[in-house]
Design a protein around this nucleic acid. Sequence first.
DNA 1: TTGCCAAGTGTACGTTCGTACACCATGCTG
DNA 2: CAGCATGGTGTACGAACGTACACTTGGCAA
Lengths: 190, 190
Amino acid sequence: MVNKDPFYLGRLQDYYALHRLIPSYAEIASLVGVSKQGAVKFIDRMIFAGYIRKGSGGRLSPANMFFARPHVGRAPAGFASPATEALGDAITIDEYLVERPSSTVLVSVRGDSMIDAGIHDGDFLIVERNTNPNIGKIVVAIVDGDFTIKYLRSGSDGLFLEPANEDYPNIYPETSLDIYGEVVGQFRKF
Amino acid sequence: MVNKDPFYLGRLQDYYALHRLIPSYAEIASLVGVSKQGAVKFIDRMIFAGYIRKGSGGRLSPANMFFARPHVGRAPAGFASPATEALGDAITIDEYLVERPSSTVLVSVRGDSMIDAGIHDGDFLIVERNTNPNIGKIVVAIVDGDFTIKYLRSGSDGLFLEPANEDYPNIYPETSLDIYGEVVGQFRKF
DNA sequence: TTGCCAAGTGTACGTTCGTACACCATGCTG
DNA sequence: CAGCATGGTGTACGAACGTACACTTGGCAA
């Protein structure tokens, strides 16, 4: 008989997708159709393989491999590299994009003033609240009470905002520049 | 005294980010600095507010609101709309972008042949395996053993691939066209 | 063929968990 | 001022949990 662990793991992943919780050994047992001790042995294997972790009190939680999605790398050759190395330690897209959840908001993009930076109308931006970002970053600024997404530049007259679209002019603040945050990521659905 | 629940919730979210597990009542108690029964009451409030769910055996798991990130909408006026309506029912960026985890892979983008579609060098694409996508979609095709990202078009001589960059030519397959999957999403870190 | 390891079953046990009930302090409202 | 909802504490208890140990079965290698 072939190795049934991938099938077991699939059941576990389905359950997790539904409940966001790794069930108890007894529940795993009935979920995959083995005895409670069979489940214990199975989970031991999953822990060894890096799919599952054990928290305090022996409670189970998913580990990195549990979320790993096949990543087809830049390599020209084909389907190699099942790893998610390129994503670093992140185990979900969420974790890759959002480093500081408590100070992060999402912003919808309207208009095409940043299109040369690959930011299109309808995109979502991941914005970290930070009123003092570095020069050169893409920032969310508040101009006339409205959000605007631009590059933060520094000129001889101080800071100004530069769009990534030659059809739009630079914005030079009359008094001061209100920065809402820094754009750290972007995503879009087709 | 102000409402301390947001502070409690923050502790819980930090813990969850670390362990991917809502701790037991006893652990919550020591985490936020109240008694076990205080934790029970607090969790009751969180359940009522939609932040936490209860699974089998009374075990706690995060619910929709637990992941909700403030979403600053398209509205010109300001910081309104804490809701994530624009993301639909998705509670994480992951769930928004990946609808069918089992048939989804990530692909790194190399080159700028799709730059007018907002797909830049270094971006990640969410690709659903599907060898028969609809005309007009962005697809991952296999040409000469290499991946290539292009629009799938239909002409008088059958299917062909069209880049989103006028510096690149259309690709007309000599025999047949190998489609790996359809590009359903994209994300990038700045 | 013998031996061994891996996968799975059954039973038992101490601990921890979630739940319930009684009670206290605070602040707002009629 | 009385009343009451809210947030919190302390104690108690049965159920469910994770763990441990002994045993069985099947496949594979020596």
